[in-house]
Amino acid sequence: MIKHFFDEEGVEQTQLALYGLTDAERQEEAAAIRLDLPAWVVRWFELDAQQQAYFNQMNSQMIGFLAEQASFAVANRLPITLIKYSARAEGDESDKLFKPTSSLTATADSNGNFEASGSLTIEVSYN
């Protein structure tokens, strides 16, 4: 597995690698995301010191939300997009904001059919 940087291109390349796995392998990765998102991110992405520090202090509710949403998207080969707005200038003390927005939905019928749709967008900005 090739680790990519945690940026727009890296997320896209990682998604291509994940969605090229067999269904069983992809389901294993989705389960790993749900079980321990921070460890999964470290395993799949090359993080710089600031990114690692941010993930280490991220609110547990945000981690849980992201884990559920990302796991569902990966399990069902749905798009995940990262949008990073301009990086914080050196010495800038503004807060980093991590804002996931999901349109993920699921539909099931009485015949046991299941359909997943939607996407997950993660915006990273500073205020």
Score class of each variant (00 low, 15 high):
Lys96Ala: 10
Glu12Trp: 09
Gly64Met: 06
Leu82Pro: 01
Tyr126Ile: 11
Pro79Cys: 05
Phe114Gln: 03
Arg26His: 05
Phe55Arg: 03
Thr81Pro: 00
Phe72Val: 13
Ser110Glu: 12
Gln61Phe: 12
Ile33Trp: 01
Ala49Trp: 05
Ile83Glu: 12
Glu68Met: 04
Phe98Trp: 15
Lys96Phe: 09
Lys84Trp: 10
Ile63Asn: 06
Asn76Arg: 14
Ala73Ile: 03
Asp36Ile: 06
Ser86Ile: 08
Thr107Gln: 14
Tyr126Asn: 13
Glu29Thr: 01
Gly10Arg: 02
Leu35Ala: 13
Phe6His: 04
Asn127Ala: 13
Asp23Arg: 13
Ala75Thr: 04
Glu9Trp: 06
Glu29Lys: 07
Asn113Ala: 14
Val74Asn: 09
Tyr126Pro: 00
Lys84Val: 13
Gln69Ala: 15
Gly118Val: 09
Gln52Cys: 07
Leu66Phe: 08
Arg34Asp: 04
Pro38Gly: 05
Lys96Cys: 08
Phe98His: 12
Asn56Cys: 04
Ala75Met: 11
Ser103Cys: 02
Ile80Asp: 04
Ile2Gln: 14
Ile83Asn: 08
Thr101Glu: 14
Thr105Gly: 15
Ala24Lys: 13
Phe55Gln: 08
Ser125Gln: 06
Pro38Glu: 03
Gln13His: 14
Phe55Asp: 01
Asp7Phe: 11
Ser103Glu: 15
Glu12Pro: 00
Gln13Ser: 12
Ser103Gln: 13
Ser103Lys: 06
Tyr126Cys: 03
Ser110Ala: 12
Arg77Thr: 11
Ala53Pro: 00
Ile80Glu: 01
Asp109Ser: 08
Ala39Gly: 09
Leu37Lys: 06
Ala73Asp: 07
Asp48Asn: 15
Ser102Gly: 10
Gly20Val: 07
Ala87Cys: 01
Ser125Pro: 02
Ala73Thr: 06
Glu29Arg: 10
Ala39Cys: 07
Glu93Tyr: 00
Pro100Trp: 01
Ala89Lys: 04
Val11Asn: 07
Ile122His: 05
Tyr19Ser: 04
Glu28Lys: 14
Ile2Gly: 01
Trp40Val: 06
Thr105Ile: 08
Ile122Val: 15
